[in-house]
Amino acid sequence: MEDYWIRRFEDRDYEEAREVLISGLNEHSSTLFRCALQQPGIQLALLSVFLVLALAVLAVNRTAYQFVSICWTEVALKDDLLDIKKSYMETSDSFFWVADCNGKVVGTIAALPFKEMVGALELKCLSNKVKSDGQGGLKVRCRAVIDFAQANGFQSTVLCTSVIQHEGKKLYERLGKILLQRTARDLKNILL
């Protein structure tokens, strides 16, 4: 056992004394932190900060969503949808249909000659009203495109979609299988 003795603080003890004090304080920091977290004022302050940050994240998310939605709408309405009649109804090799339910349009579909493949008709503008019941006559609309393709001498019907339309892609694949089973000679290609 070592012998300890107490003496008066001297200037030469300054650095070592500080290290001992800091070390002692650090031993109690976790206890002090837990004690501070148990104080109602601290809990309220932390909850307030959390709520403010959560609201800020929600606000940024909502603003970003609105910005993307506006930009997407602008992109989507640039070409053919600005003048549907001119784009789809003025020539005999293109068309635009709507699904009507009790006098309200609940879906759309269109067809144009596919620029990248001779003899192919491109299925376009396949869309449903967000809160419509069912698929708004989806099969009937696709059948109208296939009938139109047959009547106008097209050998195949093509569908192109973007990679971000995961749900749409699943729907198109399911629809393609159904239509292929029913009309194997009518529908030669579905490009996704």
Rank of each mutant, 00 (worst) to 15 (best):
A45Q: 13
A144C: 07
T157Y: 01
I6N: 02
Q165I: 00
N26M: 13
I42R: 07
A111D: 03
G134L: 05
V158H: 01
I6S: 08
A151L: 11
W97P: 02
K177P: 02
V140H: 09
L171T: 06
L171M: 15
W97T: 04
M1N: 09
L175K: 02
K85P: 03
V75H: 11
R62S: 13
E167N: 12
P40A: 10
V75G: 00
K188L: 12
N26E: 15
A184L: 10
T91C: 05
Q39L: 12
F96G: 02
L55F: 15
G134W: 00
F67R: 11
T108S: 15
I70W: 03
A64Y: 11
D11C: 06
C71D: 06
D133K: 14
E2T: 14
A45P: 00
T183S: 11
A144I: 02
E173Y: 06
F33Y: 14
A17F: 14
E173I: 15
Q43E: 05
K177T: 00
A120R: 05
L51Y: 06
A151K: 15
N102Q: 13
Y4L: 15
R174L: 09
G153V: 06
R185S: 15
V20I: 15
V75N: 07
L77Y: 09
N152V: 05
V158R: 00
C125Y: 06
P40G: 06
W72C: 06
K188R: 14
F33R: 08
L192E: 01
Y4F: 15
F50N: 07
L32C: 04
D147H: 07
C101Y: 11
R12H: 05
D13E: 07
R34H: 12
F67K: 04
K139C: 08
Q43Y: 03
S69N: 09
D13P: 11
S156C: 07
N189H: 15
L159C: 08
V105G: 02
F95C: 14
V52M: 12
T183H: 14
Q135C: 09
R7Q: 13
A144R: 06
N61E: 04
K115H: 11
L191V: 15
N189Q: 10
F154D: 00
A56Q: 08
S48Y: 11
F9E: 07
E116T: 04
F96V: 03
T108R: 05
G137D: 00
L179H: 03
D13M: 11
A36W: 07
R182S: 14
V105H: 03
E16K: 14
V52E: 07
F9G: 02
G119S: 12
L179A: 08
